[in-house]
């Protein structure tokens, strides 16, 4: 790690002000991505602002037809929350296959979204569920939020405060884990809400999470795995590395999508 200044603000306003003032400042939420990057000297923020002592940023509640999760809510809390299990069981399932228990005890939804790792799980859920990311400044639709690998719509000094998920009638998530890192090699979140069907893919695309419109169209006819038979996204724009080339990744997206629909129908 390179040297940095450390702050532990006790209010959101204070955090935002520190972030605004700091040159090359980074927010520290759960730290499960940022700290390893800093340890490997791949990230070198001059200032680290720990959100751990900021009140009011955690919690899970159902508000009408939405599920609201505070940005600093740990993955483990989402995984085990009866409210989440009742409202969007697919989200609880997604978290249960995210990282490992110790990582889930620290990692937060806000941190995951702000980081927007192209293989992370949460972005798929947000995009497929049509979530709204609420910051200290504004509300951002998931469709606008994810802007490519490790890139989001967040502006300088902007802090995610909570995430609002509209509750779907059906949803399912399936991921094929990267053999080594256990991130998503291909993860697909499908959701149906009223007439709207959204399919979001993480891990596979070379510009991060994306909506697979072809699959969405196919599922509009009938929300069943069969509707996706033979359907595979184009290999163009797929990631390719030693673990999975573009053809394999594209194939896996098809398989995971069918299995996600199966899972969505299972409850």
């Amino acid at each position: 790690m390179y040297a940095f200044e450390f702050h532990r603000p006790t209010s959101l306003r204070q955090a935002a002000s520190l972030l605004g003032k700091a040159e090359d400042g980074r927010l520290l939420a759960g730290g499960q991505s940022l700290l390893p990057m800093m340890k490997l000297r791949l990230a070198s923020p001059g200032t680290v602002i720990d959100l751990g002592a900021v009140p009011g940023m955690t919690g899970i509640e159902r508000k009408g037809r939405s599920l609201v999760i505070g940005a600093m809510t740990r993955h483990a809390e989402v995984e085990t929350s009866p409210v989440v299990k009742e409202a969007i069981p697919a989200l609880a399932h997604l978290v249960s296959v995210l990282g490992d228990p110790a990582v889930r005890n620290r990692g937060t939804i806000g941190g995951s979204l702000a980081n927007n790792d192209p293989s992370a799980d949460y972005p798929a859920a947000c995009l497929a569920l049509g979530a709204t990311i609420v910051t200290n400044q504004r509300r951002i639709a998931a469709d606008d939020f994810f802007q490519g690998v490790f890139t989001t719509a967040l502006e300088e000094g902007e802090i995610i405060v909570k995430v609002v998920f509209p509750i779907p009638s059906r949803a399912g998530y399936e991921k094929f884990r990267h053999p080594a890192s256990r991130f998503a090699l291909a993860g697909v979140f499908v959701a149906r809400r009223g007439g709207e069907i959204r399919v979001a893919v993480t891990g596979a695309g070379d510009s991060g999470v994306f909506r697979w419109h072809e699959a969405e169209e196919a599922l509009k006819g009938r929300f069943a795995p069969k509707s996706l038979d033979g359907l595979t996204p184009s290999t163009e724009g797929m990631n390719s590395d030693i673990h999975a080339d573009a053809a394999y990744r594209a194939h896996l997206v098809g398989v995971m999508a069918r299995r996600a629909v199966e899972r969505a129908l299972r409850r």
Partner: peptide, 18 residues
């Protein structure tokens, strides 16, 4: 264990443990 739950102590700053 930090506050009763498992944590990877290589992925937490000591300063976060106030």
């Amino acid at each position: 264990h930090v506050n009763g739950v498992s944590v990877k102590s290589c992925t937490m700053l000591a300063a976060q443990c106030e």
